[in-house]
Write a protein that binds this DNA or RNA. Sequence first.
DNA 1: CCAATCTTCAACTGTTATATTTAATGATAG
DNA 2: CTATCATTAAATATAACAGTTGAAGATTGG
Lengths: 227, 227
Amino acid sequence: MSLTSRSDQHALFSQFALVADALAHCHRLSLLELLAQGERRVEVLAGFLGISIASTSQHLQKLKRAGLVVDRPVGRQRLYRLSGNQVASLVLALEKVAETSLASVEKLVGEQIRSRDVEPPIRAAELRALIEREPVVLLDVRPAEEYLAGHLPGALHLPWERLRHEPPTWPADSMIVVYCRGPYCFLALEALQALHRQGYRVRRLEDGVPEWRRLGFPVEEDARGVA
Amino acid sequence: MSLTSRSDQHALFSQFALVADALAHCHRLSLLELLAQGERRVEVLAGFLGISIASTSQHLQKLKRAGLVVDRPVGRQRLYRLSGNQVASLVLALEKVAETSLASVEKLVGEQIRSRDVEPPIRAAELRALIEREPVVLLDVRPAEEYLAGHLPGALHLPWERLRHEPPTWPADSMIVVYCRGPYCFLALEALQALHRQGYRVRRLEDGVPEWRRLGFPVEEDARGVA
DNA sequence: CCAATCTTCAACTGTTATATTTAATGATAG
DNA sequence: CTATCATTAAATATAACAGTTGAAGATTGG
């Protein structure tokens, strides 16, 4: 009986290891970050990652075998999405542990992210309070599909690709909060720096829509505010 | 600039993947479960896993490189421990996701664990409430070192190895709650079944001491109650 | 039904990794 | 200096990985 216990535990933990193994590749982590924003097709995901469609499909299937994503056929294409909200939380937990206990990550994050924030990023809860106190321009710089799949209430949509070429003209004293996919997405950082150079008062929201949702805050899914 | 962003993201996510990779082996998950109970020496850990000391040492170093464990020399031996409480939480989150989204895990857990619970296991918060209402015999069936490193307040220590050979003699109507390392540790299940066969009213606490601690509940670190 | 589109599969390359054991080496305490 | 405990090295065996290209499946629109 104690013998079966040991092998049972072995079998169980091997399954857990399978899930961890699915997380153990930078492209698959990128895929999960993208899918946390909403459903996407294989071809589009391949485009974001800059690798072949076949390779992307194989990564997706590894994630699927680990139960982290599910797919459904729509027309002649196939849409992938996270199998649940806990998946996005798991990835965030992984990244948080890496950041606090791996010096190399701490260094990378410091160099690439913290040094580019003109002031410390704002967290979801703080933002909710800030909105009550003063008018804030909320800026979503993700691609259109992700904005449409859900964005912060009242957020304007100005994807980084457009913002980059057509600088906005708001009243100079506007308070702007810009956000993208999450704490490790670089889109908001680019926008932040561009707007800062133009003299705007601008801060970055550290969290993305998935985390905002997880906290139980309201999300808008229509297209109001598209620039 | 957008080019550096992509390679920066790549570098960052590769580091995250390194942490996931450290989690991706059943022996290393077992090690983390053991270390979540407290500091341990390499030789002892090897004994629990049933593998060689050298192999155990190598697994520990992979965990160390990923920042999940730290070590300190004590005399001529070396004690390993988790690098922080978030590590145990991360492992639990991983296991939870696996359980809810992998059918094979769901099946294993159902067969090996849920079917052996005579009634649904109790959670930490419920147990706290239960203790207020009626007298409960709290039973810690982990090895002595783990009990000494921290146990539930007032818990008796009766390791499974002893319980197995010397059945206890309590008043027959005692309410007993037995616990071990966590939701996927088999020690408490063995004890549960043994006590149930002897006619006791007995339930299993699903959480272990690490989770109990995480919830901010008090933990006893002295040796009161050793049988 | 045919042709176009999107995805998966199969085959292949090249590279790299893994876990494990035994034995040697290091380090520390007594 | 010796006994103890841990790390490292060497070696083996096994296998896995990611990525590409090109063919095969599946589904829709005409």
